[in-house]
Design a protein around this nucleic acid. Structure first.
Length: 359
DNA sequence: AAAACGGGGTT
DNA sequence: AACCCAGTTTT
């Protein structure tokens, strides 16, 4: 594109944004902390899902100092159900870095931002442009979709290299006059007009510039390689109560899947195996001799990369179990004070619904 | 360069 | 059921 075309492109895009841009909670005032929180929540998560989480999060942790001073369990509880929980952990770590190293002020230097936990190329670009007005690209899935269509770029957007190509393109196009509006307009355009399916090309401010539209090939873009199918794991979930009708729960490890969240004990077990195999596995992992009372509930939970097939076993154990580190006994009505992954929330809901049957 | 990492919404 | 989403970190 020549300079005149770039100018026209910017004009068309920003005019559309000023008339059609979304009114979102984190856009009402320019607060770098709000922008940061919103950008992290919006990673791999849609706007409509994020809005209530954002409002609750900001009311609980209104400032960098408040979030830095909170416990990780408080933060995790507020994030419960939003997914990708390492985002919450990294956000709090990052905020603590800013509180300590930068006197609680989000730095305006790109390399300093990139050194902060949880801030990668996209979030750094978003903060620099939206919060600080710097002409930095912020390339996400929306931007790659819009740009791949406008410029008919067929590189696989699943590749890391491709994103750099788009950053170069955006860097050459971005309006120095209002980088914040430029980047946010691409996001809104991707969400409202240049959608993956059924794009509203007739309403698009860029349709005069769009090569894919010229070819009638909008739906062929962006090009993206497929992902592997999720693998499936069978688990037996143990529902165990003590004499005071408290449930045994454990906290997951500090790293990996659903880090730091709470759950009922789970044992990987293929139902085609004999029950003896399960009993031995429980003996080995927990040191318990269990007597199964009944199997009562099953639930399948689908993650992006794996599938849990959960079967609930109500069980009794001989003798007593003392709570250890990362395990405890808890009454039903207090379970939800702690963060639980959604599949275990479903189990809690099932217990509450059926409590009269087995209390 | 590829895999891990959640959950909900849309089609 | 497949695909998508304002990505980053770890391997």
């Amino acid at each position: 594109m020549n300079p005149e075309q770039i100018k026209q492109f910017n004009h068309d895009l920003l005019k559309w944004f000023h008339e059609n841009g979304r009114d979102l909670p984190w856009r009402r005032i320019n607060n770098p902390y709000y922008t940061w929180v919103s950008e992290v929540m919006l990673q791999q998560t849609q706007v409509d899902t994020v809005i209530p989480y954002f409002n609750r999060f900001i009311s609980l942790f209104p400032t960098i100092e408040a979030l830095a001073g909170a416990t990780d369990q408080e933060v995790l509880k507020c994030w419960e159900g939003l997914g990708y929980y390492s985002r919450a952990r990294h956000l709090q770590q990052g905020v603590r870095e800013v509180a300590e190293k930068y006197d609680g002020k989000v730095p305006e230097d790109k390399n300093e931002l990139l050194s902060i936990q949880g801030i990668g190329p996209y979030t750094a670009g978003a903060l620099l442009s939206i919060a600080f007005g710097e002409p930095e690209p912020a390339v996400d899935g929306n931007v790659m979709r819009v740009m791949s269509r406008v410029f008919l770029i067929d590189d696989d957007i699943a590749k890391a290299k491709t994103k750099k190509k788009f950053e170069k393109i955006v860097g050459a196009l971005i309006a120095e006059a209002d980088p914040s509006a430029f980047n946010q307009s691409l996001m809104d355009l991707g969400a409202l007009i240049c959608r993956p399916k059924k794009p509203k090309c007739d309403e698009c401010p860029l349709n005069a510039h769009c090569l894919a539209r010229e070819e009638g090939a909008q739906l062929e873009y962006p090009v993206k390689s497929g992902k592997a199918k999720p693998r499936s794991i069978d688990y037996t979930v143990l529902l165990i109560r003590d004499a005071e009708r408290r449930y045994f729960i454990e906290q997951r490890p500090e790293t990996g899947l659903l880090a730091g969240m709470w759950q009922f004990p789970m044992i990987a077990w293929d139902p085609n195996e004999k029950e003896k195999v399960l009993e031995d596995a429980i003996q080995k992992k927990y040191g318990w001799e269990v007597r199964f009372v009944r199997t009562s509930f099953s639930y399948t939970h689908r993650f992006s990369h794996l599938i849990w097939n959960l079967s609930l076993y109500e069980a009794a154990i001989d003798g007593t179990v003392d709570p250890e580190t990362r395990t405890t006994w808890e009454h039903l009505d207090k379970l939800t004070h702690r963060p639980f992954p959604v599949p275990h929330q479903k189990i809690i809901e099932w217990i509450e619904k059926n409590r009269q049957n087995h209390t």
